[in-house]
Design a protein around this nucleic acid. Sequence first.
DNA 1: ATATCGATTATCT
DNA 2: GATAATCGATATG
Length: 217
Amino acid sequence: MGKFAQSKAGAIRPLDRAFFNRDPRRVARELLGKVLVRKDERPTHAPLTARFVEVEAYLGENDPAAHSAAGRTLRNAVLFGPPGYAYVYFIYGVHYCLNVSCEPDGTAGGVLFRALEPLTGTEEMAKARGVEIHGPKDLVSLTNGPGKLCEAFGITRARDNGCDLTSPASGLWIGEDDYHARGIRTTSRIGITKAADMPLRYLLYGNPFVSRKVRPK
DNA sequence: ATATCGATTATCT
DNA sequence: GATAATCGATATG
């Protein structure tokens, strides 16, 4: 654990598949406060953990902004499969983004992971990101964006697309501890042009690790 | 503080 | 051949 880690995670229990076998809006809201875990095969290797503070729901074939809007392709096949699996895509020729599939097999729908609050393994995350951490405020830049969090966790399509996020055996999974998420807000989604006004972005209001600030109204 | 812009490639039309 | 669920750098108020 890095010397600037802010909060601790208690014992982390994996979420079950039923958690993801629901409407992506419900999954998105309830993912806030849960924990993303990366633990690779090396026994001496400390796990990377970080708490969800910002996600977006994508509604499958009825959502013009979703990658699944035009039907199943090789790229988006995971979204059409069973719930609880990682959909990783490559964007702008530069970045990876990570989603979890939702709803039953045959129904597309997913949640994009937009920002996390790092808990443990921050030194390795900084190394993966190519940044230096001099103080607590620098931790923000590790995981406050969908491309950044993938870089911090070493997530690529070749390595992680299709992996089971309900199983610690997969090395990348989602769990819960006793943390209770407070101050959930919704806004429109970021960076899209179609269906840009739907309020499907979920975040912890005031949390410094979200990708963009939200002004009070 | 906000705005604009270039990078770089898998994927689909 | 065009596009893209981003990021970091640079410019400007």
